[in-house]
């Protein structure tokens, strides 16, 4: 802890800044954000080629799908199991930018490219998958070697207590975020979220993605055993993608609620201004 040589300053007026995010974290964060956006949107294009999901090794039009985005003569729908909901305008039946009615699953504004092209969707997806994989591998190594995992993300014994976790949940629900020194560290929910994304969700995306490759199935047939077949892997790939979207929405909400300028600036410059203690 190095203190600048300023004389006793009126602490109330001098915001306390901490160097919160090191360069690899900032770099990976933004590269990864852009990469995941491309992967999501091109992935939705690929899904549009066959908007049905199955469990097991095989699954095609004549087999029972557990999830379908489809259309009838005049409506779009989403069916999950036996539960069906009308999604006209958004899924299954929507109007494109030129005013034409389309009956693809996900709408043009959500896909890369905008109008249907499985070939182009695959080109974006299969190139950016490399960025994700290489970036994630390097970042994982850095969190291990650079101490980020041990110092910032490691969940300490006391934090595992249900009482502590429940307290943090309540504080978040009340939108009471840590202030002062405590704001410089990650809370238990933050730690679990980041660990979950970096070490569970993103590796799962890559592994289930590889399991869909017939070439990789020949090289590493155990991938099929882990995920219960190619179509199960495809379903898990889809579910995990939406889990990441859910993480993104909560993440953005928290940034907005905790002070967007300060939060985003810290992910650009590294410097985070500690919110003053309550009553200070």
């Amino acid at each position: 802890m190095a203190e600048a040589e300023t004389p006793v300053a009126p602490a109330k007026l001098e915001p306390v800044r901490v160097y919160r995010h090191r360069l690899p974290t900032r770099l990976w964060h933004w590269i990864n954000a852009a990469t995941l956006l491309v992967l999501l949107m091109s992935g939705l294009m690929i899904f549009n080629a066959h908007p049905r999901l199955y469990w097991g090794e095989y699954g095609a039009n004549f087999d029972r799908a557990w999830l379908v985005i489809g259309s009838t003569a005049d409506a779009g729908y989403l069916r999950v199991g036996d539960w069906k909901i009308d999604t006209t305008g958004v899924l299954g039946r929507w109007t494109d930018a030129q005013g034409a009615v389309q009956t693809r699953a996900f709408p043009g504004w959500a896909t890369i490219p905008t109008s249907y092209s499985l070939a182009d969707g695959r080109r974006w997806h299969l190139l950016f998958a490399w960025l994700l994989s290489i970036g994630l591998t390097l970042y994982m190594l850095w969190t291990l070697i650079g101490g980020h995992l041990r110092k910032d993300l490691h969940v300490r014994r006391a934090e595992w207590s249900p009482r502590h976790i429940w307290h943090d949940v309540k504080e978040h629900a009340r939108l009471r975020f840590p202030r002062g020194e405590a704001a410089a560290r990650y809370g238990i929910l933050q730690k679990l979220s980041y660990i979950g994304v970096i070490f569970v969700a993103l590796p799962l995306m890559i592994a289930t993605g590889l399991t869909m490759s017939p070439g990789m199935n020949a090289a590493w047939p155990w991938l099929l055993d882990i995920f219960g077949g190619r179509q199960s892997a495809r379903s898990l790939h889809f579910i995990t993608a939406w889990a990441l979207v859910a993480f993104f929405l909560v993440h953005i909400a928290m940034v907005l609620l905790a002070g967007p300028v300060n939060e985003i600036r810290s992910m650009i410059t590294g410097w985070f201004r500690l919110p003053p203690e309550r009553g200070a």
Partner: peptide
Amino acid sequence: RHDCVEGWSAI
């Protein structure tokens, strides 16, 4: 297993 580029599979 036959894997279509579209995403479906049949054995």
